[in-house]
C-alpha cells in the first residue's frame, strides 16, 4: 500500500542524504522525496512517498525515527491531510491542436508559464493522482519534457 510520510528533520548538511541512504541500505521503496524549509529555519520538512506492507512501513517509520537528525515522523496516510504535487511540462505546439491544448489546460486548472513558436510550458498543481491523469491526457499531444516535484503534504488544520 502507498504511504505518505511527513518527516521533520534538522536543516543540516547531510540530512537528506541520511534519509535517502537509509532507504537504499535497507531496501525500502522510495517513490518520491521532497524537502524544504519550514516556518522554523532550523527545521526542514520532508515528504516521503513509499509503498509496502504494514510490517515494512512500521520498520520504515522506526528507522526514520532512529536517525538522529529526524525530529518528528508522521505517517499521514490514514490521517486527514492535504497532498499536492507540482508538474511542469513542455508540449509541442502546432496550429491544429493548439485550441484543444488550451482547453485542456483550463480543465486541469493549469497555467501557461512559457510559450514559444513551437512549444508551450505549463504548470499543473494537484494530487499525485491528478498529475498522473494530466500526463496521460497530454501524452498524445507530444510531451517534450516534464518534471514532477514529488508530493508535499501537510496535516489538515483543525
Amino acid at each position: 500500500m502507498k504511504h505518505i510520510i511527513s518527516v521533520l528533520v534538522e536543516n543540516k548538511f547531510g540530512s537528506l542524504n541520511r534519509v535517502a541512504a537509509m532507504f537504499s541500505a535497507r531496501g525500502f521503496n522510495l517513490e518520491s522525496i521532497s524537502i524544504g524549509e519550514t516556518e522554523d529555519t532550523e527545521i526542514s520538512r520532508m515528504t516521503i512517498v513509499t509503498r509496502g506492507e504494514d510490517q515494512i512501513i512500521s520498520q520504515v517509520l522506526k528507522q526514520l525515527n532512529r536517525l538522529v537528525d529526524t525530529i518528528k515522523v508522521t505517517d499521514l496516510t490514514r490521517q486527514p491531510h492535504v497532498e499536492r504535487e507540482l508538474l511542469l511540462m513542455t508540449l509541442k505546439l502546432n496550429k491544429t491542436v493548439q485550441h484543444e491544448i488550451f482547453e485542456l489546460i483550463n480543465v486541469f486548472k493549469g497555467k501557461v508559464v512559457d510559450i514559444k513558436q513551437k512549444s508551450i510550458t505549463i504548470e499543473v498543481i494537484g494530487s499525485p493522482d491528478k498529475i498522473n491523469t494530466t500526463i496521460d491526457i497530454f501524452k498524445p499531444y507530444g510531451i517534450k519534457e516534464l518534471a514532477r516535484s514529488g508530493a508535499v503534504a501537510i496535516h489538515r488544520g483543525e
Binding site: 548538511f13 547531510g14 542524504n17 541520511r18 541512504a21 537509509m22 541500505a25 538522529v68 537528525d69
Partner: peptide, 14 residues
C-alpha cells in the same frame, strides 16, 4: 569519511 561512514555510524559530525 562523512559519506563513507554514514551507514555504519549511529551518527557522525563534521
Amino acid at each position: 569519511i562523512m559519506g563513507i561512514t554514514r551507514p555504519i555510524t549511529k551518527h557522525n559530525f563534521l
